[in-house]
Design a protein around this nucleic acid. Structure first.
Lengths: 236, 236
DNA sequence: CATCTTCAAATCCTATAGGACCGGGCGTGG
DNA sequence: CCACGCCCGGTCCTATAGGATTTGAAGATG
């Protein structure tokens, strides 16, 4: 899994440049990100620098750099001289706070995106909703991973279509966490039918070109997600 | 967001451990952050890893880690194998986008903060406004630095008093940039009197305990800041 | 049995070395 | 005069080495 080894063979690159000289730290970053998203690294477990370096067959330096970037996303936390740990699971309060923040930001995104929507953007959103419908929804994490990806993509696309880099940044500050809230209690996807219908409603509202309708549809979606998740939450 | 600052050397912790031993990378991070905030590093200039390592008399490894963290704040940008550069200056469009985002987030923060305001919080806010009034307002950056710091502190305190970690994160995604927009055209502080009055109005609205009043006052403040800045903007 | 000491392994953190690439100055040939 | 190649310093990137610190457990002691 670790090509790009510096120990090149006798001859240099054959013709043309090597596709794109890659930075090892980027690979480590994506590898760790995938491990976190897939749930292979459970919340609370330590992420040893030397350990992952050995596991990925690289030196600790790129691992250190990758973890420094991950820390700012909230996926891992760092204690001064003790190393990195996967951020703890969401509590019910965390979830409520997340939904409060989404309710403040995402309707605004929908309103702004609606004003400058292009047919190309609309097609991308339709594809995301279609992927949402087609995605498998099994009980294991690997199975509903595609579902979560399409869900996140839908919301991220709307954020990007605002054309406002700061709204994208604000959404991104939440986005990384949005994936993880599903681990909250380990409940799977039980509300797919409702969620798909709401996404479709948001899409339709955007297509009408009325910003207020779009914002209202998004607000309703977020509120309903919150309501269902609270209902499904495991009893403490 | 510069808590966890490794204190100099206050020894003799009664029963606790010595304050987290200083990690060199943290020191480099704060040093770079200060240089960026003070304008000693102008936008567009390259930030050499080896160079700053020599300048700060450390090895490149901590510098690399500090820059990896800074990248996620938007203060510096990294090109794959070419190094880091200070993010470019704000254009008029960037500024408009920033204000749009602030207008979406900050009134919500004011509303939420108002609902759970304590006397202690109120005192901190009053201190921030007082500092704003007392701060010098000269033409050079070093002179109105205290003013900017108090301004940012006021808004950050409100974000933190929402008690919602995600609203803090969303604000922080903007906060690092808020400092820099003053460089937009190099205009100094020309609207201090108006701004101070508006901050006072926000504070008064918070003190009444009416969340809607607080949100409205904050929205008015942000809108007026936008209006004044556009009026002051240098002609292209 | 409980508690403290001590030691060894693991880990974090920093420094240093070396490979690969880029850009500029300089000399030689046309 | 201009073009081309070469050298060289600078930089990024990764690997490796070694000091500093925490942790966990074995062993000693009351």
């Amino acid at each position: 899994m670790q090509f790009a080894s510096t120990g090149s063979h006798s001859e240099g690159r054959p013709a043309g440049r090597a596709v794109s000289r890659q930075v090892l730290a980027d690979h480590v970053y994506e590898e760790l990100l995938a491990s976190l998203m897939d749930g292979r690294l459970e919340p609370g477990t330590a992420v040893s620098i030397d350990g992952t370096a050995r596991e990925l067959d690289v030196s600790p330096t790129p691992v250190r750099e990758a973890l420094a970037r991950l820390e700012h996303t909230g996926m891992v936390r760092r204690v001064a001289l003790k190393g990195y740990r996967v951020a703890p699971v969401f509590t019910r309060e965390d979830f409520a706070e997340l939904m409060e923040a989404r309710l403040a930001i995402e309707p605004v995104n929908a309103r702004l995106a609606c004003a400058r929507l292009t047919p190309g953007h609309l097609a991308e959103l339709e594809r995301a909703v279609a992927d949402l419908k087609d995605a498998p929804r099994g009980p294991s994490f690997a199975e509903f991973r595609g579902y979560l990806e399409a869900d996140e993509r839908f919301h991220r696309l709307i954020a990007e279509q605002t054309g406002n880099q700061f709204m994208v940044a604000a959404y991104a500050a939440l986005g990384g966490q949005i994936q993880r809230f599903r681990l909250f209690g380990g409940v799977g996807i039980t509300d797919a039918d409702h969620a798909i219908a709401e996404h479709q409603a948001v899409l339709d509202a955007l297509a009408t070109g009325d910003p207020e309708k779009a914002a209202a549809a998004m607000a309703e979606h977020v509120q309903k997600v919150r309501g269902r998740a609270i209902a499904d939450a495991p009893a403490e």
